[in-house]
């Protein structure tokens, strides 16, 4: 069976920066307090939900930023122990906390600011118990973690949780190797960009404009 190349397509025309995907990620993956794998960012002024420009000529938009599951991932190349690797069958870049040395080289290597997070201390949870999916990734002190495209859901044939919940219907997920897939069609037919394309990492996340 041909390998898949899972990718995400985010429609910035639809995205309203509501943070639902970010919170969904926290819930589904039982993320520790203060830990965000998927952040909603305002492309505009200095603060969240503020525009760029001078009144009344203003501009404001949003992107969400998580692991870009690059085809040429900088993180995988530098990990000294293979704790982060690219799954050949799906194109998903995985991260295994149980193998991680905690050297943070992957965080240094990744050009996408802040998509990898290190558990600097013992993870804490406001609810006091594990929430989200039963097969949510584990979270270990002194290890690096990041978005897995909800691989635990993908293996069950489900969409990443952030895609399922998006109130704006701005997020799409699918196989970029399949020219008929919704994501391939969107990328084919809509103008788009990828983040930091000049870095040559070949990210698998597309932003429609």
């Amino acid at each position: 069976m041909a390998n898949k190349h899972y990718g995400m397509v985010i429609d910035t025309k639809r995205c309203i920066g509501c943070h639902t995907c970010s919170v969904a990620c926290k819930l589904e993956n039982n993320l520790p307090d203060k830990n965000w794998w998927n952040r909603t960012l305002t492309v505009g002024g200095e603060d969240m939900d503020t525009p760029a420009g001078v009144f009344p000529n203003l501009k404001m938009g949003f992107i969400t930023l998580a692991c870009q599951h690059c085809e040429n991932p900088a993180c995988v190349k530098v990990c000294p122990v293979g704790a982060t690797w690219k799954d050949e069958a799906t194109g998903i870049v995985m991260q295994d906390p149980s193998k991680c040395l905690g050297c943070r080289y992957c965080m240094v290597a990744c050009p996408y600011t802040g998509v990898r997070e290190f558990n600097f201390e013992e993870p804490t949870y406001a609810t006091g118990f594990a929430v989200g999916s039963i097969d949510a990734p584990i979270h270990e002190k002194s290890t690096v973690e990041k978005c897995t495209f909800c691989a635990h859901r993908v293996v069950k044939g489900e969409l990443p949780f952030c895609v399922e919940v998006c109130p704006a219907r701005a997020r799409h997920f699918g196989d970029l190797n399949d020219p008929e897939s919704e994501v391939s069609q969107l990328v084919l037919n809509r103008s788009h960009f990828r983040l930091l394309e000049e870095k040559g990492t070949e990210p698998s996340v597309y932003f429609l404009t």
């Binding site: 943070h19 970010s22 203060k34 965000w36 952040r39 909603t40 960012l41 305002t42 492309v43 505009g44 002024g45 200095e46 603060d47 969240m48 939900d49 503020t50 992107i63 930023l65 050009p111 996408y112 600011t113 802040g114 997070e117 983040l195 930091l196 870095k199």
Partner: peptide
């Protein structure tokens, strides 16, 4: 920061 937009504070 290569991507430096306002959002939730992670540092």
């Amino acid at each position: 920061q290569n991507i430096n937009y306002a959002g939730v504070q992670i540092a």
